[in-house]
Every structure is written in structure tokens, then in C-alpha cells.
Design a protein around this nucleic acid. Sequence first.
DNA 1: GTTATTCGGACATTTAATATCCGAATTAGG
DNA 2: CCTAATTCGGATATTAAATGTCCGAATAAC
Lengths: 168, 168
Amino acid sequence: MQISKGVEWAVHAASMMVALPEGRGLKAAALAHYHGVPTAYMAKQLQALSKAGIVQSSRGAHGGYRLAKPATDISLWDITAAIEGHGPAFRCTEIRQNGPCGLKRKDCRSPCQIAAAFSSAERAFRDSLKAVTLADIGLQFVRDSEPEHLSDIMHWLESEVMPLSDTP
Amino acid sequence: MQISKGVEWAVHAASMMVALPEGRGLKAAALAHYHGVPTAYMAKQLQALSKAGIVQSSRGAHGGYRLAKPATDISLWDITAAIEGHGPAFRCTEIRQNGPCGLKRKDCRSPCQIAAAFSSAERAFRDSLKAVTLADIGLQFVRDSEPEHLSDIMHWLESEVMPLSDTP
DNA sequence: GTTATTCGGACATTTAATATCCGAATTAGG
DNA sequence: CCTAATTCGGATATTAAATGTCCGAATAAC
Ligand code: SF4
Ligand code: SF4
């Protein structure tokens, strides 16, 4: 019942990419250094986002990552699922088929009330995260931050994002 | 983002206790054997339920477990929290304080939008599980099961529950 | 008081999360 | 066109957590 901390890192990295100019990217090392986390492990999360089609990667010199689609089309659930997997949190092991009063497999066609209740709770969790997009996060962040802090970030971005190829 | 399978076992065990006659109990070994799971590990889950005040335990000869309060007052969330802990699934490591543009601690008094979104999603999850009680599970189980199967269970219960002390 | 029985917490083992490394692929530049 | 620099990608260690096991403390029957 713990969410991997890689999810937190991935969300932060993706949020940073929202502010990127069109056709530019950020390399994994820069994102890791900015957030003060191990480079190789941050790269692993970006890899997962890439496989899920959330970010686009360019290899070789002047390569890096950028968002693969508009920020309004990327929800927090998309990122969470990309890192943690799409499988359900409550894993039923069908122990009702065990023991002295075990049911036959044919009597287990429909999930029991217990499994249904957890499934419903997880759906509520997912729907809540699906309602929040990276665009929302970015907008609120700009609103709530000190102008001075935003200026620092823009400055850092320019120093890292400048030398980038625009070919996809 | 995985729920321990101990939760599944604990819910099954607690559901079984709903059917117990007043003042009777079931020992850990019986519950474990009935569900076809390791005895000692099932005992561990029951221990957690006991500490959380969900079940009451009696030691010594003819000891065992019984529900500590009415089935209508025990929700699936109560059981889940007893096994998995009450802490949040999304653990914020405050990485916004790291790196070249790190914020000062005093600027982090309020949680950011990311943490707030996950907190809200978890609340939705909890509320959904809180709405389902052991009484609901028991009632639906009786409705959906074959009479033959219920008869088997009653038979087994009588053979296990008979020799029990009624002193708390 | 003795003994049989059961829960309780302390102790191994296995699995998953965390962190790291080096090769494959691509591009810039000559 | 070829080379070298650079970056991503998957395979590989390490650490933490979940899973599974054991024996002592406590209780009740006799
Ligand atoms: S009865 Fe429900 S929770 Fe139990 S094993 Fe079957 S589907 Fe899973
Ligand atoms: S910005 Fe939000 S998610 Fe990131 S470290 Fe701070 S509270 Fe956590």
C-alpha cells in the first residue's frame, strides 16, 4: 500500500517539461541534478514514461526528453500507472477455493463482494487522479510561487535547454 | 502500490467470525486451515487485528478470536488500515527543497498541488472502503451462495466452535 | 500446582523496490 | 563518409519490505 517514490520524481520531471519551449528537451542528468536525486534512477523513471508514450526521447548528442503530447492530455494517473503498473492493488488469490469447504472453480465465475468492494475503491482512486492534468499542476504552480523563484527556474532552464536539437 | 495479501486473509477471517454464535470464538489454526494458508502467518494478521481493537483474543486452553464489536461497526478500511498501517501511500520526500533552485523550508509550509492531488485520491479510496462493513459482506455472501455450501460451512463451524469458553 | 493449549512477539527467508553500471544508438562535426 | 562525443536503454547489484517460521509467555482447565 505504498506508492513508489519514483512516481513523485516522475511527476516533478514531467511538470518541469511543461515549461519547455516547443521542440526543445531536457536530458536525464539535468532533471536529476535539478531535483537532487540519483541520475541513473531518475533515468529509469524517464525510461518508463517513454515506454508509456508520455514523453518522447532523442538519443545521441544534444538529445533529451520532452512531452509526447499536450499537457492537458497527461493526467497524474497516466504517470502513476506508467511507473507502478496498471495491475490492481488488491490481488485476489482465490483462497475461497482452498480448504475443507473450498468452492469448485466453476462456482467462482463472478468476483465476490470483497474483491468487488476493493475494485470499486481503486476505481475511485484512479478517477480522482485522472481529473488532474499536468497543465493543472503547472498553472497552479505558477500562481502559487514567488516571482523570484519562477525567475530562478527560468534562468536555470535557459542554461540547460539552450543547446538542443529540434529534430524529433 | 500493492496491497498485502494479508489484508485478503484478514478480511476472510473476520467475515467468518461474523457467523459465530455469541460468546464463542475460533482459534487461529482453524481459520488458517479453513482458508488453506500458513497457520503462523494467518496468526500474524489476527494479531494485528487484535492490536487495532477489531477482534478480541482469549489465550490458553479453549481460547481463540472473536469480533470485538458489532459487524456493522467494522469497515473494510478498518481492516486494511490495521494490516497495512494508517500512513499515506504517497510519501512526499520534499525534493522541492533540493537542487540548484531548492526552496527554503519556510516556503514549504503548505503542501504543493501534487501532494494535495494524491491526498485527495487516497481520501476517495478510504471513503469507498469505509462504506462497506463486515455486515454487508456477510449478508451478501449468504444471499449469493448455494444453500449446500452454506450448510457445509455451518457444519464445519459447529465442529470447530463447539468446545469454547465464554469468558472474555 | 500441574499440564495442556493458545496467543504474542522475536526470528529467518523470499520478493520487490532502490540504486548503479556499461553497451547500443544517434548525432555533431570534421 | 568516417570518427568521436554524447545520450538513452536495458541488464545488473544492493538494500528495504513483505512473506513465512519459530519458540517463549500467558491463560485456563483439571
Ligand atoms: S472470496 Fe473474494 S477476496 Fe476471497 S479469494 Fe475469492 S474473490 Fe478473492
Ligand atoms: S513539491 Fe509537492 S510532491 Fe514535490 S516534494 Fe514538495 S510536497 Fe512533495
